[in-house]
């Protein structure tokens, strides 16, 4: 690990000021320290934000939930309100990492974790995300785990989070504060950038901008599930995952909020897929049409070609499950 200067932040003011000057925030550290040991990341200064009071889950006035950025993945997954009213989020969190990691990983850090693309981790290989302009080894390399949607010729990495996929389906909003004290609210789609020609830029967050909370809107009617397909039954990243919130009324679909993980550089959501489903009577033909729409521009790179049919089957299976359950 390269040497760094270490600061224990006493307030968001000092933390954001230090970060605006080039320091990097550290919270749980489960991803950052892994990358620092490999020297994939080498911040000259770390600001430890663990002592900031951002570790509470509070109910909002409109029946939603404000989740502090330092709430651990365990505390969020096990919160009785989340388990009852936003089960897709609890399920997504419990499907991720291990018990030890969930006890340390935080809400803000989970959102900002880096890709697990093997070439991003391997400093001997070209990677535009790690070293802009060096090229992408993954496109013609071992890309089994990588993206089929939203890629660019410069990067085909996926965002590895399960939690963020569920939050995307739930229309969660990220709250931030900058070093000048100004705050802003971003929905998850606006937080993340597609790789384009600058895959090293992953979010719209500015230097010194700190995620303080994630806000869940009030719970909605409908069934929720998180389906994760991976190479082993536990403690593995998603090859494909689907977070679904589906409501039915009089035999027709009235809500189909669907987000996808393991297939794109950010938690993926396609409004056209949802528009195609809402108002319709569930059928396998309809679900196949939804998959056609979702995958219209999908592109495999050889080893990850299987993700196209896998995404299709997972989506059809999730929709079948959620609409069947809603009918009973």
């Amino acid at each position: 690990m390269r040497p760094f200067e270490y600061t224990r932040a006493q307030s968001t003011e000092t933390a954001t000021r230090d970060a605006a000057g080039g320091a990097m925030f550290i919270a749980g550290g489960t991803n950052l320290l892994d990358l620092m040991k490999l020297e994939v990341m080498a911040p000259a200064e770390l600001v430890d934000i663990n002592r900031l009071e951002l570790d509470r889950i509070e109910e909002t006035e409109d029946g939603g939930l404000r989740i502090g950025a330092l709430v651990t993945n365990s505390d969020l997954a096990n919160d009785t309100r989340v388990r009852r009213d936003w089960p897709v989020l609890s399920r997504a969190l419990l499907a991720g990492a291990s018990g030890q990691l969930r006890n340390k990983a935080t809400t803000g850090g989970n959102l900002l974790q880096r890709t697990r693309c093997l070439y991003f981790y391997d400093r001997a290989m070209a990677c535009n995300k790690r070293e802009p302009g060096s090229g992408c080894s993954a496109r013609e390399g071992f890309n089994r785990i990588l993206a089929i949607l939203g890629t660019s010729e410069h990067c085909i990495a996926t965002h590895p989070s399960d939690m963020a996929v569920a939050m995307r389906a739930l229309d969660a909003v990220v709250e931030t504060v900058k070093d000048d004290g100004s705050t802003r609210r971003l929905n998850l789609d606006d937080l993340y950038l597609l790789p384009g020609d600058r895959p090293d830029r992953e979010t719209v967050l500015e230097p010194g901008e700190l995620i303080t909370a994630v806000v869940l809107p009030a719970p909605v009617a409908g069934r929720q599930t998180y389906r994760k397909v991976r190479d082993r039954a536990s403690y593995a990243f998603a090859l494909v995952s689907v977070a679904g919130v589906v409501a039915m009324e009089d035999g027709r679909i009235t809500r189909a909020d669907l987000a996808f993980g393991g297939v794109a550089p950010k938690p993926w959501r396609d409004p056209q897929v949802e528009a195609l489903l809402v108002g319709q009577t569930p059928s396998e033909a309809l679900f196949e049409k939804a998959a056609d729409q979702l995958l219209a521009e999908a592109e495999g790179f050889g080893a990850n070609d299987f993700k196209l049919p896998l995404t299709r089957r997972t989506l059809v299976s999730v929709l079948t499950e959620l609409t069947q359950e809603a009918r009973t």
Partner: peptide, 20 residues
């Protein structure tokens, strides 16, 4: 794996100075 404040964590993935 050790327990910090009663919770199990990976002690290799955290800095000692973060646990003052």
């Amino acid at each position: 794996t050790v327990m910090v404040n009663g919770r199990r964590i990976n002690s290799c993935l955290t800095l000692a100075c973060m646990h003052d």
